[in-house]
Design a protein around this nucleic acid. Structure first.
Lengths: 349, 349
DNA sequence: CTCCGAATTGCATACGAATGCAATACTGCC
DNA sequence: GGCAGTATTGCATTCGTATGCAATTCGGAG
């Protein structure tokens, strides 16, 4: 078999309309069905046919129209991924990994980025109109919205969220457990007065972390607790620390921030504005295990989310449910990974 | 007119197939065309018709199928956004902003995330198959790939990239100009020996920054220059600094890192491993103006990319070209914003 | 050479909405 | 009340691919 002698390979006559499977069929002298079959995986087509069609196809620069295909197969091969902007440093990593996981499986990602987590108004409508095969969301939907999605028979996986009454599949990091570890270690090392810096009120993650920490503190009989709230950002981290000191009258023994970025803000404020030494004068801990938490200026004591496993798990959970819509909901919780950094005085053990 | 007395509003009979415009038409006793027109913006439909149709529509839980619509209108209302993972801390911001800009205009984003910038193999094929209306890419495509896209008549906007021979629209931050400012300021303040930390070789941005800096250094007659290369990440930033000192025999007067994250790595390594004081013993500068650059432990002297304006510009440039494909290519370059932080000794002026 | 089963191929139709054109309903005006 | 002009509505077709079914071809065994 010699190769094609024509050097012109993939440059269709310019100015023409996009080639369709009929054009290819006509040029190759076969039926449109044949073309369709050549471009599918499990379809039957002889070697000769395959060659004829392929030759015609790339002479015309043809490629199958995924839109038309989706219409007939009732599968868009797209999933919607919803993120909210706020959880700034952490989600990008999640997003990139999810996208790669889906890509590996031949599934495309339709991205929806919310300004705030509660901006879910139009998103549901959009997703349903585009007939996505599944939804992976790191923003909270209302029960009504979840029901709408459910009525449309579209599988959903919640990322670091759980639906209150609703039953829906989810993948999450066990925030309470992580906070318990942090609190236990801090109390164990002798800290008695605490500052708690929570995140935005419409963030489920923030609420879980805060209540997780508060419950454990109470359980251990700690009563000297001051609470302030920020927005997960660095600047508010600094402001929160200042506010904390003012409210408490003096710096507490330890500060538990709802995420790493705010913890970093607290550290900077403690050092710069109050001249405190971290962790000698005060212990400060975060949550997430983002990149900057490792910067040696901070070396945060924190709980890292096992992002790799979580995204892996979430993606395959969604894909499974797309293949088999009858699967019952499943909730997977991953333990966070305790990081003993240098931003807190902990017992040696 | 009294309202509907039926309390059941949007819950279609479960187990049924998704409602189509024909179903709605049948229930409302009108033609399918009528339904189609009610769900469009500029179509003519009487008030009565609109009401009948809408009532039937949300009784059935109907919503137009964007896939089918795309097939007939030849418009998917989707754009592809391509990012590569590497430029870790900077692109998330870009991505979120772009997505929001497009969303505002009723355009959906199909996301492609590359592991490395050179992993563009299958991406082009994917984008064309999905008939995206336009492409916004922050990864470099080969001339052949760009030609393929061009043949498909899909407008492209390159983000912080320019095509070598090819002519294509682009939005970029003027990296050379930014590096010139940094170099000028450093030399002006008396620095004479330089370390240059470049990023991954397949990153256009990194190459531009490096050559921008080197050219300006040479122009000013500086010859004591040591070059090392990393991957834009924090860890390699640290390693690069160590390598730099070893190659040079001693710490240089100043280090120019290809991005902020590596600059931060350099600072940590300088302080921790060598006990140097920044900026007293050594000046270290970065590029991008990402969040962590502002953390007061670093307070980087850097050049910030005007992300807001760039994404705004890129999005509207692409949308314009989708509306009017005849528009000739246009290249927009934005000046970076010089940030005089505390990581470098600069002249007061 | 004949016949049988398996592998290919073509035909016709379906997917769900948009739209040009023709038919019809309405509007205001004389 | 009649008429011209406009706003609505329906009909029929189109977008590009997949697929069930029937027709055809192919290969090899007897």
């Amino acid at each position: 078999m010699k190769k094609q002698e024509k050097p012109v390979e993939a440059s269709p006559q310019p100015g023409k309309k996009r080639a369709t499977s009929y054009d290819v069929a006509a040029l190759a002298g076969v039926s449109q069905s044949a073309v369709s079959r050549v471009f599918q995986d499990g379809a039957s087509a002889s070697k000769a046919m395959r060659e004829r069609v392929m030759a015609a196809a790339d002479q015309l620069g043809y490629r199958p129209n995924a839109i038309a295909r989706g219409l007939i197969t009732q599968r868009s091969n797209m999933v919607a991924v919803v993120i909210s902007k706020l959880t700034n440093l952490y989600y990008p990593e999640v997003l990139v990994q999810l996208t790669q996981r889906f890509s590996e499986q031949g599934v495309r990602v339709l991205l929806f980025a919310l300004e705030r987590e509660s901006d879910t108004e139009t998103v549901v409508e959009q997703m349903l109109q585009y007939r996505v095969d599944g939804i992976l969301t790191a923003a909270m939907f209302s029960p009504e919205q979840l029901e709408t999605i459910d009525n449309a028979l579209i599988p959903v996986v919640l990322y670091n969220r759980t639906a209150p009454g609703q039953q829906a599949s989810s993948v999450r990091c066990d925030q309470e457990e992580g906070e318990r570890w942090l609190v236990d270690e801090l109390v164990n090392a002798g800290h008695r007065s605490f500052g708690v810096v929570e995140g935005p009120v419409d963030s489920v993650v923030s609420v879980e972390r805060k209540t997780g920490a508060l419950n454990e503190l109470r359980r251990l009989g700690i009563t000297d607790i001051t609470t302030v709230s920020g927005d997960f950002g660095y600047e508010t981290g600094r402001e929160c620390f200042a506010e904390l000191v003012e409210k408490h009258g003096s710096p507490p023994d330890a500060v538990i921030a709802a995420n790493d970025v705010m913890a970093i803000g607290c550290i900077d404020e403690a050092r710069e504005a109050l001249g405190l030494s971290v962790p000698d004068d005060i212990s400060i801990v975060g949550f997430d295990g983002v990149g900057p938490a490792r910067y040696s200026a901070y070396a945060l004591t924190t709980v890292r989310q096992p992002v790799q496993r979580m995204t892996q798990s979430a993606a395959s959970m969604l894909l499974e449910r797309i293949e088999n819509p009858e699967l019952s909901p499943e909730k997977r919780a991953f333990s966070g990974i305790p990081i003993r950094g240098r931003s807190a005085r902990l017992a040696d053990d």
